[in-house]
């Protein structure tokens, strides 16, 4: 079936089975490999993308559910000025080691700071509670989000 949606601000049409996971469409049909597959069952957040600006697990989303919607992957977020602030903060505070969870972490951070530019540590923990990291022990990530929120404030 032909399915239309927007990916990173470009209209696309893919001809796929409507039950295909958004994750597989992004990686295998559109060849955008920044979005990662960790668990494939909604537990790790590595596959996080934005759908109409809201974070979704792309491994649980049938492509039929995003018809006509705007999907943003890490490749699209990279074009934003917020990305630079967030990525810098992750680099400075040790928020990324192997990097596998990082695209998901950055998207979760981006979405949090859009809706809540000055989160408390508790709010940061809740916002990232669906994103697993096997390397950093999380403190570096929380510090990164806090730094990004402070830096973002200066740029306002």
């Amino acid at each position: 079936m032909k399915i239309n949606f927007v990916i990173n601000k470009h209209n696309v049409t893919v001809d796929v089975d409507p039950s295909m996971r958004l994750l597989d469409v992004i990686r295998n049909e559109l060849h955008l490999t920044g979005t990662k597959e960790g668990c494939g069952e909604g537990s790790c957040g590595a596959c996080t993308v934005l759908v109409d600006n809201i974070p979704y697990d792309s491994c649980l989303t049938p492509i039929a559910n995003v018809i006509g919607k705007e999907v943003m992957t890490i490749e699209g977020i990279r074009e934003s000025k917020e990305y630079n602030v967030i990525a810098d903060a992750f680099a400075k505070m040790g928020g990324s080691q192997c990097g596998f969870c990082t695209p998901g972490m950055i998207i979760a951070t981006y979405a949090l700071l859009q809706s809540n530019p000055h989160p408390t540590d508790e709010e940061i923990k809740v916002a990232l509670s669906g994103n697993l990291c096997r390397c950093t022990g999380y403190q570096g990530i929380i510090n990164s989000v806090r730094l990004a929120s402070q830096k973002g404030e200066k740029n306002d």
């Binding site: 089975d17 409507p18 039950s19 295909m20 996971r21 597989d24 295998n28 597959e37 494939g40 069952e41 909604g42 697990d57 491994c59 649980l60 989303t61 049938p62 039929a64 559910n65």
Partner: peptide
């Protein structure tokens, strides 16, 4: 949302979920 069904019908990465009957989204 698919958060139950897409897990129950998932096979493996890159393969389509296995629905044995019609699907309404």
């Amino acid at each position: 949302g698919g958060t139950d069904l897409m897990v129950q019908k998932h096979r493996s990465s890159g393969l389509l979920p296995t629905f044995e009957k019609d699907v309404l989204y």
